[in-house]
Amino acid sequence: MSSASGGTIRSIQILRAMAATAVVYFHCNSPHGGFGFPQTGAWGVDIFFVISGFIIAGTALRRRENFLRIRVIRVVPIYLVATFLMTSVVLALPDRVNSAEVSPAGLLKSALFIPYEMATRPGPILEAGWTLNYEMFFYVMVALALLATRNARRGLALAAALLCLLVLSGWFAPSEWYLVRFYQSSLFLEFLSGVLLWVIYERSREIPARFMVGRMASAVAGGFLIAGGIGLLLAVDAGAVFAGGTDVRFLQYGLPAVLVVAGGLLTESALPAGRWTTLLVELGDASYALYLFHPFVILFLSRIVFEGALAGGGPWLRLALLILATALALTASVVVNRYIDGPIQRRLRGRVLRVKSSEKALVRPQV
């Protein structure tokens, strides 16, 4: 993620790395993962959504004319690679990937980010891709609002108003049609919270630097991070975020995620330069690849290589295998980001966007 000056907002990248790693932990300890530790970390998705809103606000304000193309180039190519790879795995090893179904219609809907239901679970074929259905809908809504208003700030305001109405309709009149009900989710409030954080972050540049560092800023940042972290860890399981049929995920996961992202942003000026910060920033840059490809690592290790060890092993063995799985997933994400996604991004940006070299930092936002 780039700042207004063209530099990387390191706190956002670090938060992305932490959020993606939390999702890896969550899936490792799902029934299909089988590592057997307490299952938490689904809230990594909510942190991602808040960060996505933050990024989209900056992209819309700076590159309004290329907004949708920038987002499609960033999200779609490597997602299609992962989707077709998962399709191949399901067809080759159907007994190992027993929650996914492959059909021409399902593959088409997966590729076009159209929500649908399988017999065993909701689509798409790449299970983690459900979040991208929300992402792409959010992008399209913002793009249409930008087109209608021809002004970035008014466009963001219009998109926010329409999405709030959509969420309210889900609370008061949930649809019986799955496609509509899917988009009535309170998750859109997380995107909009990220947009609001961007506005506050940009306005904070007008505050003298001496007020943005020091004990007071550290205390506020620490308070946000601690409160948000506790809120996420104490929130209910991801499968139980509906109270009496009402979607309350924003209240349970979204608000703590907003606090975590806000606290992270407050630490930006205090982050030290050094090897560990550089490593975390690189992992943040690879977090989208980590999110898309970690299921393959977990599948390979838990359902093929270590299936027997996980079934009969004690906690220390399972912990060692969990650390190994996480390390391999992180390593694979960096490799994919550097040698597959990175080259694809550079080629498409050069051919489709044709921007000046001085503007390239602005068209490389992350998910």
Rank of each mutant, 00 (worst) to 15 (best):
322 L>G: 15
41 G>R: 04
161 A>Q: 02
72 V>M: 06
328 L>Y: 13
22 A>F: 10
156 L>Q: 01
147 L>T: 03
115 P>W: 14
97 V>C: 12
274 G>L: 07
243 A>Y: 03
58 G>H: 01
243 A>F: 03
156 L>C: 01
341 D>P: 08
281 V>A: 12
283 L>E: 02
2 S>Q: 08
354 R>S: 13
134 Y>I: 14
335 V>F: 15
200 I>S: 12
362 L>T: 02
127 E>D: 12
362 L>R: 00
188 F>Q: 06
270 A>T: 15
149 T>A: 04
149 T>D: 07
141 M>F: 08
114 I>M: 14
36 G>D: 03
117 E>R: 15
166 L>I: 08
96 R>G: 00
53 G>R: 03
91 L>V: 14
262 A>E: 10
92 A>P: 12
87 T>N: 15
223 G>N: 11
15 L>T: 05
34 G>N: 04
221 A>F: 01
89 V>T: 09
87 T>E: 13
350 G>F: 11
89 V>S: 06
70 I>G: 07
331 T>N: 11
54 F>L: 01
173 A>H: 05
47 I>D: 04
34 G>R: 06
125 I>W: 04
149 T>F: 05
5 S>M: 03
224 F>R: 01
258 V>A: 11
7 G>Q: 08
241 V>C: 05
114 I>R: 12
61 L>Q: 14
315 P>R: 01
276 W>F: 07
252 Q>F: 02
172 F>M: 02
56 I>G: 01
299 L>K: 01
303 R>V: 06
13 Q>L: 15
59 T>S: 12
274 G>R: 05
159 A>I: 06
129 G>Y: 10
300 F>D: 00
366 Q>A: 15
113 F>V: 12
353 L>C: 05
21 T>N: 06
277 T>C: 08
194 G>Q: 09
19 A>H: 12
177 W>C: 03
70 I>F: 10
318 R>E: 14
